[in-house]
Design a binder for these strands. Sequence first.
RNA 1: GCACCCGUAGCUCAGGUGGAUAGAGCAUUUGCCUUCUAAGCAAAGGGUCACAGGUUCGAGUCCUGUCGGGUGCACCA
Length: 641
Amino acid sequence: MFHSLERSISRAVSQYLQSKFDLEVPVTTEQPKQSSFGEVALPVAFQLARQLKKPPVAIAKDLADGLKDQIEGIAALEVASGYLNVRFHRGWYARRILEGNDFDTQELSIRKTIVEHTNINPNKAAHIGHLRNAILGDTFVRMMKAMGTRVEVQNYIDNTGVQVADVVAGFHFIEKKTAAEVAEIAKRPRFDYYCWDLYSRVAQMEEIKQWRGETIHGIESGHGPLSEMGHVVADAIVECHLNTMLRLGIQYDVLPRESEILHLQFWASCFEQLKERNAIYLETEGKNAGCWVMPGSAFRENAGEEDSKVIVRSNGTVTYVGKDTAYQLWKFGLLGKDFYYRKLRTYPNGQACYVSQSMREGSERAAFGGGTSVYNVIDSRQSYLQDVVAAGLRALGYDAQAEKSIHFSYEMVALSPRTCVELGIELSEQDKAKPYVEMSGRKGLGVKADDLIDQLIERAKTEVDSRHAEKPEDGRRKVAEQIAVCALRYFLLKFTRTSVIAFDLQEALSFEGETGPYVQYAAVRARNILRKVGAVPDFKGSLTEDMLDTELQTEDLWQLLLEISRLESVLAAAVTSGEPAALARYAFQLAQGFSRFYHDYRVLDEADEARRNVLIWMTQHFARQLEKTLNTLGIEVPEYM
RNA sequence: GCACCCGUAGCUCAGGUGGAUAGAGCAUUUGCCUUCUAAGCAAAGGGUCACAGGUUCGAGUCCUGUCGGGUGCACCA
């Protein structure tokens, strides 16, 4: 509601300026510093002061007089130190919300937006850095869907890369296992943990350099024991990752795999296009002799020869950038090729998740890719590579798509020194001096996602048990899980994308203050009130505009209603700026507002009927809007807390 | 060396396209459970928005420079 009224105000002002002064100026609105100034403030008079050669106060006065009674829902226009302050008609505003006219109708778009996120190398367990990626991506997807956008979620599986090769080399050269034996091990629980340890062991060995080449070659060839083992490892780890993510409510539509990019000649096709357009050339001298490279000038200003990026190695294999360029082309429907698909799993909510495959046999009808815009959720350390990929698109003449291929970047998750100590991680003198310590899969240094989730559940379970011993065990378990997921998602969402998270276990495990559970708690309390009220009457008949107006003269109530009605506005801004943290913060503010309300007003004990109805209605409206906000953040509201 | 990100309260962080007296949480101190659940509420202290210039009627926000910290700049991804 706030969103639409705010816009109608700025439209009215804009029209007035046009008709009276023949001026076309963007009219911005803002929230006044103090609520006593009203609901919306317009600093437009300051901008116009010079043009109109009049003091701001005079201009604002003119606007206030000229627009008096011209905008529906506005009770007063006031001038204060040059600002034009707007006061809403409280009863009108509330009544509009009550009637359900408070949303801007959004048509489901025909254009498809593709979001690629998670993208964990399928060679070890997921850690909290991966969680930031997946939770950011998943939440952004939910936000866009809430706005009516059609979204397809992809999780790219690099099943033929160096990281998988290293683990395969570990099984083959160190543990002397066959593919069949590895398949047996993979059936055990937490195979991803096993590989986590194996990977860090292998990665730190001297011999890995020799082993790696042989293994990659075997994997890329697509046949033979090493290739077979590569599939066994990668497929099993992908299952682990999907399970981990599902615990957090994160699901995917399709998993395009690198093995198919290679075997279905996606790269070959892309390679031809790049050569035709002279986007890459065969280097004949220098350190890159024998490689196909993209000149540095394509993606970097004042680049020299040394900035060129190798796309095809001298041994003929393709680098990640090359494969990713082919993948990007496919995402936009520009490759003229498609994968075959099979259903990998069906989620409990009925959604299917497909995975690519290279053969027609056994494939199922499914259509993916061909998006109009693409978001790649990838951490900021890879921005250089993303620039190269975008340059590849431009070099092929796809400037429009390069524009629409957005690197949805975020800073890394590192570990706080305190947490390193708690986890028994030994730090070098150099690391001790740092504000945070970067995680490293190679060193096996990090907090595993499932471990953290388990810890959060245990902690939540203890709290739930102490408060609700009378409830059945499985119910308490479920509540604890919901709280844990909420705490984790909120923790990783409350930081803006540009902020490095120095992960601190104690902070992450906290359920008080600015945390997810605090927000959930407010929602649960609201529900409790509504439950005790019983059948909530339809207030459309019983709450008139006048009654609402009278009750909402109480400032706290009015401020709470205003805050609740900002959801659409906040959501739109958060999607535009690509910042899920903005929505998370809003959820917290809403909860804060309600907690105060809960403390200050006794809804059930209210003697005055009109007031009681308003309080119940406010509670109901709050519950609805907060739940909508939480759902968009991927958070559920427990039965009790 | 070049590129990107960060620098705001003791700590962790917010501060839409510049606007009125810079905000939260944690921590500290102090109140509030006979109450719709205290995972809560209320109050207090705590600031040269790294620094210096510039643009502007107006700068935490934009520009330039300096100083700190981080991350990239592979025939790894």
